[in-house]
Design a protein around this nucleic acid. Structure first.
Length: 487
RNA sequence: GGCGACGUAGCCAAGUGGUAAGGCAGAGGUCUGCAAAACCUUUAUUCACCGGUUCGAAUCCGGUCGUCGCCUCCA
């Protein structure tokens, strides 16, 4: 069964058929580096991180290219506002980008080309387009002629005449058609500039991706990805430039992920409702953020809220609790199995069902559901295990089930910490917010154990209540009392 | 105005013609001195609404209402 992927270009799910057998070439639009990354960027990084990991898991070789837009109007504007050099500003936010993505455990792409390092390639491409009559110089600028390119609008599904050009875009007198877009932009005094046949200037936004994808992946490659907002104009224009220049198809498949909203509104700089990745990571672990992001299929909109993050965190804890419990199990013996055929089958078929969900346009929501379902079976089994002589087959099932869950969750970058270490460090972090030391807590537990031995329930419960007031929750088990920190 | 997406329990969310996964929250139970955790059971005769196709529809078709996005920089 091939992997099916929704293709924006055809508006259908299509089987993945790489041009080169077994080798997927993927280009994703990266950041424009002039500010900290926000939760919407996080979704983009995580979605493509997951896609690359899954394709590799499925045995594909993946060449993953993601660019940096390090020269652009926004960078120039921000740099001049802050009175710094545009280069410096762009470099600083590339560094900040790495800080965030490394913390989230995002795989580095195979290649991360920068626009400013590919000026000659872009100039050559613009020259090709001029040579083919698809672009023209006007003043110090060069524009793409949209009305000379028959397929303009194919990707975004719109027609030139429907776009009401000029309604929201200022009509630029330099352009022959209002929808013509800039390939090369003459520079004003003081702006960053490169020499070109059309005078000093800088590249337009779209041309870099056409030039860099061509250089590193070829004229036609397998998948091009980005956020839904890039469909138009960015990707439409890229496609026009590339197909216009080469006369060949550009990307065979286009993947676009949905937005992250906050209170059902799209984040935007103008609404000032965006949340940066680091703000979220102050409150939550990277894996909880991943679980939240993957709780819905990548094309659907996703609404961020503290409550949703809490849900994700709770779910993550539950998964780790189960894995930690499995890690503590002793080896099994000759006892009878306590696992039903149905439950055994559920664990045994987990991988196959997981792959089936993921093959269907990377349905991580369904895939996570299957993992939780498996966790439930594992917990149930642990619960049913006799205290001493557990059956070796049951222990094997638990261990292999736990290993499979971790491996599959790893495709989403989740459950990658040692379970016992996860629980320990979580406890540690919560303890920092509580005005009791571990010694004090354990002293109180000892006192309570003594009271319980004497059946002095009043004292015992009083100690428990006192600890609970400090956020410490006790759990009496067969091997004594353990404690946990409640939020 | 043009184009597109979506509307499934209290909340989130899967389901791509065969009789509603999963998570969070809630209720009852097992366990416990009582709790907690875990487990078990339970919570949508029903998938915005109205028609149609079909032996059969949350799933396909038509219409209505509602929400959102793109058409400007944007993940």
């Amino acid at each position: 069964m091939p992997i099916k992927i929704y293709n924006t270009l055809t508006r259908k799910k299509e089987p993945l058929q790489p041009i080169e057998e077994g080798h997927v070439k993927l280009y994703v639009c990266g950041i424009t580096s002039y500010d900290f990354c926000h939760i919407g960027h996080a979704r983009s990084f995580l979605v493509f991180d997951m896609i690359v990991r899954y394709l590799r898991y499925r045995g594909y070789k993946v060449t993953f290219v993601r660019n940096f837009t390090d020269i652009d109007d926004k960078i120039i504007k921000r740099a001049s506002e802050q009175n710094v050099d545009a280069r410096e500003l762009a470099d600083k936010f590339i560094e900040e980008f790495y800080t965030d993505t490394d913390r989230m455990g995002i795989l580095r792409p195979d290649l991360e080309p920068k626009a400013t390092e590919h000026i000659p390639e872009m100039i050559a491409l613009v020259q090709e387009l001029i040579g083919k009559g698809l672009a023209y110089q006007s003043g110090n600028d060069v524009y793409f002629r949209v009305d000379r390119f028959d397929h303009y609008g194919d990707l975004s599904g719109r027609k030139l005449e429907d776009m009401q050009a000029g309604a929201r875009v200022e009509v630029n007198e330099q352009k022959r058609h209002p929808m013509d877009f800039v390939l090369w932009k003459g520079s004003k005094p003081g702006e960053p500039k490169w020499a070109s046949p059309w005078g000093e200037g800088r590249p337009g936004w779209h041309i870099e991706c056409s030039a860099m994808s061509r250089k590193y992946l070829g004229e036609t490659f397998d998948i091009h990805g980005g956020g839904q907002d890039l469909v138009f104009p960015h990707h439409e224009n890229e496609m026009a430039q590339s197909v216009g220049a080469t006369g060949k198809p550009f990307a065979n498949l286009w993947i676009h992920h949905g937005f992250v909203t906050i209170r059902d509104e799209k984040m935007s700089k103008s609404l000032n409702n965006f949340l940066t990745i680091r703000e979220i990571l102050e409150q939550h672990q990277p894996e909880a953020l991943r679980l939240f992001i993957f709780s819905t299929q990548y094309r659907n909109p996703l609404d961020f809220s503290e409550a949703a993050m809490q849900d994700a965190e709770t779910g993550l804890d539950r998964m780790y609790d189960c894995l930690a419990r499995i890690a503590e199990l002793d080896n099994g013996g000759e006892g009878a199995s306590v696992v039903s055929d149905k439950d055994r089958e559920k664990v045994d078929s987990l991988r196959q069902r997981f792959e089936h969900a993921m093959d269907n346009d990377f349905n991580t929501a369904q895939a996570l559901g299957l993992l939780f379902d498996a966790i439930k079976v594992l917990n149930k089994t642990i619960q049913a295990l006799p205290p001493k002589k557990a059956a070796a087959t049951d222990i094997d099932l638990l261990r292999s089930g736990g290993t499979t869950v971790r491996e599959l969750a790893g495709i989403m970058g989740v459950l990658q910490q040692d379970p016992r270490e996860y629980i320990r460090s979580k406890k540690q972090r919560r303890l920092e917010d509580i005005d009791l030391t571990v010694d004090e807590i354990e002293k109180m537990i000892q006192d309570r154990t003594r009271a319980r031995a004497e059946k002095d329930w009043a004292t015992s419960d009083a100690i428990r209540d006192r600890l609970l007031q400090h956020g410490i929750e006790l759990q009496d088990g067969a091997d004594g009392t353990t404690w946990d920190v409640r939020l």
